[in-house]
């Protein structure tokens, strides 16, 4: 007779593997379904589209994944992205290519601010980022005058790279997102501070007593989240040649969902940044596919929500230990 404990261990191991392959399997299954319903889903043209749509989700998700890894949450990525998109549109017309580094610095600043509020002032991340989320939303409205801004044709040469496809089907935009993902993933796996982020999520007290820089790691995670959001905002702006002050809002939750689908646990300490790629892919496929096969727009969110629930259920901590999001 097998012991209860061991059966549990086995079950939890199976669940871990399941979680890992869940995104992959569902990606394949859903792709096959969509393809059967409309073969043009896997056509070159649609794949290009899909990868382009996926780029902002991916950069925002891998930033968010850092914060989730801590066991915290960042609710401000959406409005940081919106604000970045508006800033981008305004700055491209006034300072030209300098807009890129300036907006990137803005992302670093916005993220670091969240991190400092959370660590130094001891504000729970949920509240701190909820507050800054409101601040950046207003800033986006003020900058744009409350309306969508279009990029004037004079500045188009600076954003035309977003239209370039490598090998005729892979958008340069997606490659840029992939570079961000690889850098984030590298930092998480191969640097001390990156590893500290993960161990803080598992056991903050022990990490502190082990002599690791806990505050630094937390600030880094929030900084990366802000940076990812700002890059996402840049992508929105160059893709659409416009700055819409609400463009990023729904992407906040999509980013969280993508990270969780990629296996990052909301209680922290588990998962990998790189797997966010799969989560972002799955989310984009569902969204894109539903359009391709012509799912009624009013039904889309119901299907989307149900799929998300299933994924998060697979991923949740069923041992009922440490369920609270910090």
């Amino acid at each position: 007779m097998e012991s209860v404990k061991n059966i549990r261990n086995k079950a939890s191991m199976d669940r871990e593997t399941l979680t890992k392959i869940f995104s992959l399997i569902s990606t394949i299954v859903i792709s096959v379904v969509f393809c059967a319903m409309n073969p043009s889903f896997l056509g070159t043209k649609n794949i290009t589209n899909l990868l382009r749509d996926m780029s902002p989700v991916l950069v925002m998700a891998c930033g968010e994944a850092y914060v989730l890894m801590l066991g915290s949450i960042d609710l401000s990525t959406g409005t940081v992205a919106s604000c970045a998109a508006v800033m981008m549109t305004v700055l491209l017309q006034s300072v030209g290519a300098w807009a890129y580094p300036i907006v990137i610095l803005y992302g670093v600043f916005a993220g670091t601010m969240n991190g400092v509020l959370h660590t130094k002032l001891g504000v729970p991340s949920f509240i701190a980022t909820l507050s800054t989320q409101a601040i950046w939303q207003s800033a986006a409205y003020l900058l744009s005058g409350g309306q969508p801004l279009s990029l004037l044709p004079a500045a188009w040469p600076l954003v035309n790279w977003a239209k370039v496809n490598v090998l005729d089907c892979i958008p340069l935009l997606f490659l840029a997102a992939l570079v961000v993902l690889l850098i984030y993933s590298f930092v998480s796996r191969y640097t001390g501070i990156g590893r500290t982020v993960k161990s803080v999520g598992s056991n903050e007290r022990a990490t502190w007593l082990m002599g690791q820089n806990v505050h630094g790691a937390k600030i880094l995670a929030f900084m990366f989240s802000g940076l990812g959001a700002a890059i996402g905002g840049i992508f929105f702006a160059v893709k659409a040649k416009s700055g819409i002050p609400t463009v990023g809002v729904q992407y906040n939750m999509l980013g969280i969902a993508a990270a969780v689908l990629g296996g990052v646990q909301m209680t922290g300490g588990k998962g990998s940044i790189f797997m966010t790629l799969l989560g972002a892919l799955l989310i984009t496929i569902i969204q894109n596919g539903m359009n391709v096969v012509g799912v009624d727009g009013l039904w889309q969110q119901i299907i989307f929500g149900a799929l998300l629930l299933a994924a998060i259920f697979m991923n949740s901590d069923k041992d009922h230990k440490g369920l609270i999001v910090k």
């Binding site: 993960k198 161990s199 598992s202 056991n203 007290r205 022990a206 990490t207 502190w208 007593l209 082990m210 002599g211 690791q212 820089n213 806990v214 505050h215 300490g269 588990k270």
Partner: peptide, 27 residues
């Protein structure tokens, strides 16, 4: 912080509450 003590003075502790302070059980 213990981080500064470790880096600047080479001081480190074996904490009392092993499960919550000494190890990261998930790792």
């Amino acid at each position: 912080s213990p981080s500064q003590a470790r880096k600047a003075a080479s001081i480190l502790s074996v904490p009392r509450e092993r499960r919550v302070e000494g190890i990261i059980g998930e790792l």
